[in-house]
Amino acid sequence: MDTALIDLAEGGSGVIGDIDVNVGSRGRLMDLGLTPGARVTCLFSAPSGDPRAYLIRGSAIALRREDAAGVRLMGR
């Protein structure tokens, strides 16, 4: 099974593979820099565990669970 962004633990990082076409905000996520090959680090989570903040191309950006679940990571 391939992993998704949501599987990263706090402090963990990975490389974006592809974004699930079913994710509604796919274009928006890509426009924020989540394009294939980009490195992403999981920084911290909200008190309820969702959303989480990710370091994407130098900025911390909050992503909700359903978005993070649709962002696939390349196999390590």
Partner: peptide, 29 residues
Amino acid sequence: GNVSNILIEGVYRACESIAEECVRGPAGY
């Protein structure tokens, strides 16, 4: 495929190569 996605990827690839040449330093938080 989705043209928007192709264009976004294209622009970001350009961003990456420009940043690679002009930006030095840690990318971390």
